[in-house]
């Protein structure tokens, strides 16, 4: 464990908590893409199947349980409890265009052709594009609540911090995983224009307005 990975995990934890607070306090999931949340739940389910078979540390297990529970819980809140506030009309990104290519790619490009490894690879590829429905929805609505933009900033930062973690591990541990690194770079790059808007607007107290 290193400071970059810890900061990344905490940023990821913060993002999920911010989202849950937003939905629970406003009792609404307006502006949130349910499709992205479904993709995140799939990412965690396919990545943490080894939760019971592969004990790393109490921290690792606790975080996996929280991420699994919160992502499934968020899907429940969006599609069942606060279903009336879910914005179907703007959450229209075709997630099959993300699921199929990442599934095929994980069958072709992986470290080992085994069920667990392919599911892990699929979850890495899927996570890199899972935010697209959410970014698409923000571009369609043309704006986002400030708490939603804080959520996106924390979520985008987490994988950016993981890139620093991979650089650190490469130089100090000689460890690197090219699949996770490439996918993590793609994932972080997808947030770039949002990061620009967040830093130039939201941090100045303005609302996140996308040029229509």
């Amino acid at each position: 464990m290193n400071i970059f990975r810890l900061a990344g995990d905490l940023s990821h934890l913060a993002a999920i908590i911010i989202l849950l607070i937003k939905i629970w306090k406003t009792r609404s999931c307006a502006g949130i893409s349910g499709r992205s949340q479904v993709l995140f739940a799939i990412v965690f389910i396919t990545r943490y199947l080894d939760l019971f078979t592969n004990f790393i540390s109490a921290y690792n297990t606790a975080m996996k349980v929280f991420f699994l529970g919160s992502s499934i819980g968020t899907v429940y809140l969006m599609y069942l409890k606060f279903k009336a506030t879910y914005d179907h009309n703007h959450d229209t990104f075709r997630i099959e265009f993300l699921l199929l290519p990442t599934a095929l790619l994980s069958l072709v490009l992986n470290h080992e052709f085994s069920v667990m490894e392919i599911l892990w690879t699929f979850s890495i590829y899927l996570e890199s594009v899972a935010i697209l429905p959410q970014l698409f929805m923000v571009s369609k609505t043309g704006e986002a609540e400030s708490i939603t933009s804080h959520y996106l900033f924390a979520l985008g930062s987490y994988r950016g911090l993981y890139i620093l973690n991979w650089i650190y591990r490469y130089y100090f541990e000689g460890f690197y995983d090219i699949i996770a690194i490439v996918a993590g770079c793609v994932q972080t790059i997808l947030y770039c224009d949002f990061f620009y808007l967040y830093i130039t607007k939201v941090l100045k107290g303005k609302k996140l307005q996308l040029p229509a």
């Binding site: 990975r5 995990d9 080894d50 690792n60 975080m63 470290h111 973690n165």
Partner: peptide
């Protein structure tokens, strides 16, 4: 050796 490539990242 097997432990080496354990997935220890979240």
């Amino acid at each position: 050796e097997e432990d080496e490539n354990k997935k220890d990242e979240l």
